[in-house]
């Protein structure tokens, strides 16, 4: 199980690097799609079929198509000097590296003791729905407001006239 997980993680990493170092925007978008699929596989491994499929539906069916659509619409092609390393970005990257090491170190030094909350792991849609509409009712409502804001915002920015 561990090997399978890490092989999958390796693929995630490869696709993630493919996204951030890619030269062709469209290829990067596809790499991102494959990355999302590996994450969906992780959800399947953990036993949560529901989340895995939702992940594929939302990302593959919606988000990546949207990104690809905009890439074609804007006519973005290969841009050879798309990234260059200036002094500022270099220091940023070094700081980020130290930050990452710090986070890993901090997490490794502490004892994270997980206590099982239930006798078994409930991955059914019914279980998730119960939690969503009882304990997480208010976040759910706020998320709906957030979606509405997002829709109106995207509409306002993307439409032609003022």
């Amino acid at each position: 199980m561990k090997t399978v997980f890490y092989i999958n993680a390796l693929f995630s990493l490869i696709f993630a690097l493919g996204v951030i170092f890619g030269k062709n925007p469209l290829r990067s978008a596809l790499s991102l799609l494959l990355f999302f699929l590996t994450i969906a596989l992780d959800f399947f491994f953990a036993g949560s079929e529901y989340l895995g499929f939702v992940q594929i539906i939302v990302y593959a069916g919606g988000i990546i198509v949207m990104i690809a659509f905009v890439i074609i619409l804007l006519g973005l092609k290969k841009e050879s000097p798309d990234y260059d390393i200036t002094v500022r970005s270099f220091t940023g990257i070094i700081l980020l590296g130290f930050f990452a090491l710090g986070v890993l170190y901090g997490l490794a030094k502490s004892v994270l003791h997980l206590i099982p909350k239930a006798p078994y792991f409930d991955t059914s849609a019914a279980g998730i729905g119960d939690a969503l509409f009882s304990k997480y009712l208010l976040p759910f409502e706020v998320a709906s407001i957030l979606l509405l804001v997002g829709v109106v915002l995207a509409f306002i920015f993307a439409k032609k006239e003022v």
Partner: peptide
Amino acid sequence: KYSNDTNPQV
């Protein structure tokens, strides 16, 4: 998965 908890899925 490791705390048998539904909430993180939400």
